[in-house]
Simulated assay, not measured.
Amino acid sequence: MFRSIAYGIVPNRRYADGVVTLVMGVYESCRALGVDFRGVELGDWLMFQQSELEYPNRNITLKSNHEFHITTNRYDGSIGRVVIKPTIPKIYKALLDATITEHVEYMGRVVIDGVGVRNNRLWIHGEVHMTVPLDVYYEHMVRYRRNNGKLIGGVDVNTDRINLAIINDDGELIDHRTFWFSEVTTRGFPRHKAWSIIGMRIHELLDYAYRHGVKTLFLENPEVLGRLKLVWIKRGDRGHENYNHKVMVFRSSIIEKIALKAPLYSIEVKYVSPRGTTNSEEHDELMRKYRLDRHTASAYLTALRGLITNGNKHYE
């Protein structure tokens, strides 16, 4: 039923299916998180999406010169093609070239995040997103192919920072560091810019862990790994009934990004239960013993739990 309605508005099978897939994903995420679907507000303006892997992608076609030829369906029923050449970060050019030369199937979508009038001419600003198989991404984006480290890392994720604790096989604290992004929690801070900053902190975290001998990184396993990415945390919003859900989704999104990027540094990721990592006698004891702040102690406890989970005999 939804597909027929979408197709009636956009007479393009791939775009219509993309709309249904997107909305269904949001609906299922709301059910998993207990969020009222009717209260969800969209963020950036999603213009076009094709939700099936295809090479070449017929609606959002990547060309050898890194241009994208995008199919548009006009109100009068006619079909056109818009050619755009977005700014491509240097690190992604090799992946785009591999997509073309290896005929990698991919999905595409166009997101509009700004529109206005300048000198009596309409302008829009946005991004082109591509989804490729994960093994292709790792093959062409990896930064360190070998990891000879032997240490263990624990991570604690919060709304304004990521804390890393590094331990050895005996459970001794070797090093710890905090990666801040507190500016992104300011009310009205642009979401796209916020995730850009968070992404940089994640790479700094993983690079630091790799250079300090971390082979395995343990993360808290959220009780609900919701994939709803349409909410954002604003300082002072704690009175909102969905605040806890927003915090959980935000932290889960960062954890997912760390897990996604870690293989680029040849770091293995594993999960431990988050229960008691922030409020427990063991947590408070670690704070007093090592004079750690609450979040660093949580990262340390996460690493210790990972050590125990792996069956290490040295730590008691």
Rank of each mutant, 00 (worst) to 15 (best):
L230T: 03
Y55H: 12
L301H: 08
I5V: 15
Y106G: 01
E285P: 05
W180K: 11
L230R: 04
Y315G: 08
K313M: 10
L228N: 08
A32L: 10
W45D: 15
S51A: 15
S196E: 04
R201L: 06
I267N: 00
M130I: 07
Y315A: 12
N168Y: 07
H283P: 04
D135Q: 09
V26M: 07
V26C: 05
H176E: 09
T21L: 07
K215R: 13
E127A: 08
V115K: 08
Y315C: 12
R191L: 04
K257E: 03
L230Q: 12
G226M: 04
H129P: 04
R211S: 09
V26Q: 06
P133N: 06
Y7R: 12
L164R: 02
G306Y: 05
T87H: 12
M141G: 03
L62Q: 04
I112K: 00
E282A: 14
V231I: 11
S29E: 04
V231H: 03
D36P: 05
T101G: 08
D113R: 01
F48R: 10
P133V: 11
L260T: 14
K313Q: 12
H240W: 10
S64I: 15
S280N: 13
T277E: 11
L304Y: 02
G276Y: 12
N120K: 05
H283D: 04
K85I: 04
Y92W: 09
D76H: 06
S196N: 11
M1V: 14
E127P: 03
R235W: 02
V26F: 01
V231P: 05
N310W: 11
S182W: 03
H295E: 13
R143K: 14
L292T: 14
I197D: 01
Q49S: 08
G153F: 06
L217Y: 02
E204R: 09
L228D: 03
V23P: 00
H129N: 07
G188C: 08
M24H: 12
W45F: 11
M1T: 15
L304C: 07
S29I: 05
E241M: 11
L264A: 07
V19Q: 00
D175E: 15
G154A: 06
H192A: 06
E281M: 14
G153E: 09
Y137I: 07
K85R: 14
R191S: 05
R191H: 03
S266H: 11
L304T: 09
A297D: 10
S298V: 05
E41N: 14
P190C: 03
D169Q: 13
M248S: 15
K229E: 11
Y106E: 00
K270I: 10
R145K: 15
V111Y: 00
E28P: 02
K234H: 15
G306F: 02
P86F: 02
Y138S: 06
I198C: 00
K85W: 07
I79H: 02
R294S: 15
M1P: 11
I308L: 10
T216D: 08
